[in-house]
Amino acid sequence: MAKHHIAAVVNGDPVEFLCEPGDTLLDVLRDALGLTGTKEGCSTGDCGACSVTVDGRLVCACLMLGVEAAGTSIGTIEGMANGEELHPLQRKFLEHAALQCGICTPGFLVAAKSLLERSPDPTETEVRYWLAGNLCRCTGYDKIVRAVLDAAAEMRGA
């Protein structure tokens, strides 16, 4: 099985990797590129633990092939903090205790960041529906939703 040679940008850095045609972007990120912050919870697009952005668009990395990533710009949890400075969402998740086990957290953060880029002042309902594809089994979502709303307020300077 011939492997494809793919060039893309991940978190601003140019990367190249080899992948089989059936490898998903999630396989590539975790196994070929060692970016294990993106989690595998179901591999069927139902849990959102593998949320990443591709050319600014929020997607499940398990539902995209590595070969489809050629020439794209990918954003993962590893690229969210700015150097030593956590993204406001990351900080608010910590302050609000919006994580327990933490396995869903990278997916939630990437998804929430994507929301706030489009909708800086979301309602609670908007947050809940935008994040409906991210499953959390620990928190009941309460503190996650509060953290996102609080981060949004801070980012708006409210």
């Binding site: 697009g45 499940c60 594809g133």
Partner: peptide
């Protein structure tokens, strides 16, 4: 159809 993530694809 599906989640926000699914909508992206």
């Amino acid at each position: 159809i599906g989640s926000t993530q699914i909508q992206g694809r």
